[in-house]
Amino acid sequence: MKKKFDVKDLITVGVFTALYFVVTFIVACLGFIPIFMVLMPLIGPVFSGIPLMLYFSKIKHFGMVTITGIIIAILMFVTGHPYPIFIFCIGAGLITELVLRAGNYSSIKHCVIGSATFSLWLLGMVIAFFFGFRESYFAYLVDGYGQEYVDAMMGYTPTWVFFAMIVMCLVGGLIGGLLGAKVLNKHFRKAGMI
């Protein structure tokens, strides 16, 4: 294993972050329907976990997952998501980094756990519904989406749901990671691409 962090790694980060982002984005479009918005942290990682596992299998150096986190945060921020997304993305990236390193970047089991911890960044997208952001965000939503939507969303998001969402992220990430591991075994290991 090479010790140096080089341009090859940066390119791997770029390509796989693109794939991961696109898959997440497509699944996030389900969020149009309020109940899916709440279930997003569960459904999203299940699908995005598959490319994520392939990405993790390519990672050999500390720092790559965090860069992915930062890039996702930047993309989300410039297209209009509120700033707490940075905290969640970078935090989730760092935790995942530590998990992967604990597995010495080669253990499938740690990759699956990493897939669960990395999906925690999705909480950054829904944080506006909770805690200090809640009141102002809903006041603003009434304006654009109508009272009915806001009532439905408010009904779906009492504070305990935030903690349920943490669990959903982890469970969704685990399922996605296991699916990803299965896909890797079925298609990539045989072809010698890992």
């Binding site: 341009v7 090859k8 390119i11 791997t12 390509v15 796989f16 794939l19 898959v23 598959i50 490319p51 392939l54 390519k58 896909v183 298609h187 990539f188 072809a191 691409m193």
Partner: peptide, 20 residues
């Protein structure tokens, strides 16, 4: 997704060579 992932791996390799 699987063909997409395959091509992603391929492109990562190609780009690395190009960047070098």
């Amino acid at each position: 997704l699987v063909p997409l992932m395959m091509s992603t791996v391929q492109i990562a390799n190609d780009l690395s060579a190009a960047s070098l």
